[in-house]
């Protein structure tokens, strides 16, 4: 087991190193994306244009020996453009028949670029694929080949002509990662790499089977009951009006996290524990992933929006107020 964990760490390190050849800085985003992939979840990357979101996804697909498709979401994009459609084709016998033409969704990694520019109808076409990992078209269910990841990006500004993602859609994303501006040093490195004609070549360092094996290992990592309990209490603390809710929740939230929030936190915490070479999940792991796992699952009320309170503020407050365990609560009192 120790060997497996060690191998896991090594693979992740190699993957990070390859990505690092192209992506400057953004270590949290890279780690978050990797965590989602290792846990088998989809990622929503949010950031202003030009921060390297698309480049990150493309680099990741290059580093992984997996099929990759990119869909540029536009308002006129139709569900069939993503999922595929039945076309009338002539077979070698000269007879015409319907044949399903697979859409770009049929890949291991799908980059849904600027996902919020498509209409809700088109966005919803992704729901089944993301949750069930299958596509139903023409009355036929077509499973997607695992692993399947949707890495979506969206632009928080320039809201005209955009369609905010529905809550159901958001909930299906494992993590929502906020891509921030690079630091001065990072920006200098970006300039150096992109303006000197130097082209780094990303090598494929992880095969599909290895990735599936790593995903399997993640599921096996033991989680102590009190850590699970903490994750549960964190999610319950987001439920406005509930007994377990903290003050900030009651004040600023309309709806709290779904059970997917707790599942996400535990899975992500397992990945984190393995990346750090530990054999069990700790409270710190849960805390570290809580922000990315919960921020898109909370729905703010009018008061919060009026006061420019973000879900990140609320999660930070919840992490501060919910004691990690009953033992620590007793010790504190």
């Amino acid at each position: 087991m120790e060997e497996k964990v060690s191998k896991f760490r090594e693979r992740v390190s190699r993957l990070k190193a390859e990505i690092g050849k192209v992506i400057v800085g953004q270590s949290e985003i890279v780690e978050g994306t990797l965590t989602s992939i290792l846990a088998g979840g989809h990622v929503l990357l949010e950031g202003v244009p030009g921060l390297g979101k698309t480049l990150l996804v493309r680099t990741l697909s290059e580093a992984l020996d997996l099929s990759f498709n990119r869909v540029q979401f536009t308002p006129d994009l139709m569900p069939a453009d993503i999922l595929g459609t039945n076309l009338v084709v002539e077979n070698p016998d000269g007879r015409r028949e319907f044949q399903f033409q697979r859409g770009p969704i049929f890949a291991h990694i799908v980059l849904a670029d600027e996902i919020n520019r498509a209409t809700p109808k088109t966005q919803s076409a992704m729901l089944e694929a993301m949750q069930e990992k299958s596509v139903t078209a023409g009355g036929e269910v077509r499973p997607l080949v695992p692993p399947f990841f949707v890495l979506a990006t969206q632009n928080p500004i320039d809201q005209e002509g955009t369609y905010p993602l529905p809550e159901a859609q958001l909930d299906r994303f494992f993590f929502k990662l906020l891509v921030t501006y690079p630091t001065a040093a990072e920006l200098t490195a970006v300039i150096d790499r992109t303006t000197e004609g130097r082209q780094e070549k990303v090598e494929k360092v992880l095969e599909r089977e290895a990735l599936l094996e790593m995903q399997g290992l993640v599921r096996e990592v033991p989680v102590p009951s009190h850590v699970k309990d903490y994750a549960v209490r964190l999610v319950l603390a987001t439920h406005a009006g509930a007994e377990s809710a903290v003050d900030v929740t009651n004040q600023y939230l309309r709806f709290g996290s779904s059970p997917r929030g707790a599942q996400t936190m535990i899975l992500a915490a397992k990945v984190r524990a393995l990346i750090e070479g530990r054999f069990n999940v700790s409270f710190d792991d849960v805390k570290a992933v809580a922000m990315a796992a919960l921020r898109h699952r909370l729905i703010l009320n009018f008061e919060a929006q009026a006061e420019a309170i973000t879900t990140d503020h609320i999660i930070a407050k919840i992490l501060e107020e919910v004691p990690v365990s009953k033992v620590s609560a007793a010790a504190a009192s």
Partner: peptide, 22 residues
């Protein structure tokens, strides 16, 4: 200790594969 002691106690008997490691 990142919950190493508590995890070791909890999984020492329930999970054979991970128990020893923990």
């Amino acid at each position: 200790l990142k919950e190493k002691l508590s995890a070791a106690l909890e999984f020492s008997r329930s999970s054979a594969a991970w128990g020893d490691v923990l």
